[in-house]
Computed example of a mutant assay.
Amino acid sequence: MANIKIVLADTDDKYLMPLERKFIDGLEDKADLIVITDPDYLKEYFSEPQRVDILIINEELYDAELERHNIASVFILTEQELLNNNTGDAEANRIYKYTSVKEIYAEIIGKSSARSETLNTKEETKILMMYSPIGGIGKTTVSAALCEALAKYQKKVLLIGIDSLQTIGSVIPQLPFMESGTEKLLIEKSEYVYEAVKTKIINRTFDLLPPFHLSLPSLNIKGEDYINLINGIRDSKDYDYVIVDGATGFTEDLSRLMGVADHTIILAGQDKNAVYKLDCLLRNIDCSDNDRFVFVCNKYRNNRENFLANGYMTNFCRVSEYIELWTENSASEEGVLTNNRSIQKLALMFI
């Protein structure tokens, strides 16, 4: 299979160096990378017909004449932050130049992979568990927002809620309940359970397993049933990510689900009571692996005391991201946070 051809064009060679390194590290021998910093050489290079898979170019260097060439995807680096990526050209996307290298790379590869078999290689499914010992911290909302953020990077994502009372409908309105009888498929623990359940999955911006109308205990559904399902999904490689919206509290089932997850995101609060509950959790599990356990403070208010940053707590958990308290107006019509920088940064931790 032929390598993809990527052209990086910007007069600032120091700016291009880390971006070039990211493409080299990320794509290894799958791509032929051409870096152009001289405007005259850029004109000379495109003076003859060129076939380019990905062109990443500073807006000051971009010329409509480039459209005459066979360029599959164009990404324009702009000095101005944009509210959207629309350029008027269906084949071009604008990217804020001073976004992180990792974010630029993720957006470019995500949007280009659908066009290129070379880039569209199937990797292992990552299982992300969202958990909190604190009720009302926004666990389900952040789970859905994370799914949406990953989907914007062209990732295929499935959301599974395992709360005893399935309340995902409060975040995603007009969501139908799971078809009656599906619980029997789960508790049979068949190795083909995913094949049996996948027809029930609903597609929105991301995919999700509909909530059960009754509580899980009343349906005799246990954590081990979800573990069996998750393992089946992982084996299928149908999804890039499975986000598991975990239950509040701490049980043996939840502990086992954390063991299955590649990463567990622990939502914390900044107030004294929330930090006390987090401390109780940390006395029962070892969260010292900073790659496997990621701490996020949700509903953060910078005008209030942050007990997470006080005293001995900083020795036991390193908060990777603070998500500021949102209002209803900052959520999409489906009720999840969109275009939130903290959510986007959280998504990038796992890409």
Rank of each mutant, 00 (worst) to 15 (best):
R304H: 04
T264A: 01
E183K: 14
V319R: 06
N290D: 01
E79T: 13
N303P: 00
K14D: 09
S236G: 09
G138H: 09
E117I: 11
Y153P: 00
K43W: 10
L281E: 03
D89Y: 15
I221N: 08
I109E: 03
L281K: 09
A64Y: 14
K126T: 01
A268F: 10
Y131H: 13
N93A: 01
T327Q: 14
I160V: 15
M258F: 15
M1F: 10
E195D: 13
G136C: 12
N273D: 04
L219W: 09
K152N: 07
K272P: 08
I285P: 04
I4T: 04
L214S: 04
L33M: 04
R21T: 11
I134E: 00
K272S: 04
I36V: 14
T327E: 13
G88M: 08
L216R: 01
A144T: 10
I104S: 06
N284I: 14
T264V: 10
E305H: 12
H69A: 05
L325G: 03
R301E: 11
E252T: 15
S113L: 03
L308K: 02
L19C: 14
M258L: 08
M178W: 14
S170Q: 07
L150D: 00
E123C: 00
L214M: 10
I285C: 13
N290A: 15
I57N: 07
V171I: 14
R283W: 04
S164A: 09
Q166K: 09
F307M: 08
G88Q: 08
Q174L: 12
D12S: 00
K22S: 10
S218Q: 05
G223H: 06
Q80I: 13
C280V: 11
N315G: 03
T264E: 02
P211G: 06
Q344F: 08
D163W: 08
N120H: 13
I343Q: 12
A90H: 00
P176D: 05
S190N: 14
N303C: 12
A268R: 01
I36G: 04
I56Q: 04
Y153M: 02
Y322D: 00
N310Y: 04
L82H: 11
Y45E: 04
F206A: 06
D32Y: 01
N93H: 06
L282W: 07
I6P: 03
G232A: 02
F46H: 13
H263K: 05
D291W: 01
F23Y: 15
T199I: 14
K122Y: 07
A144M: 02
V7S: 05
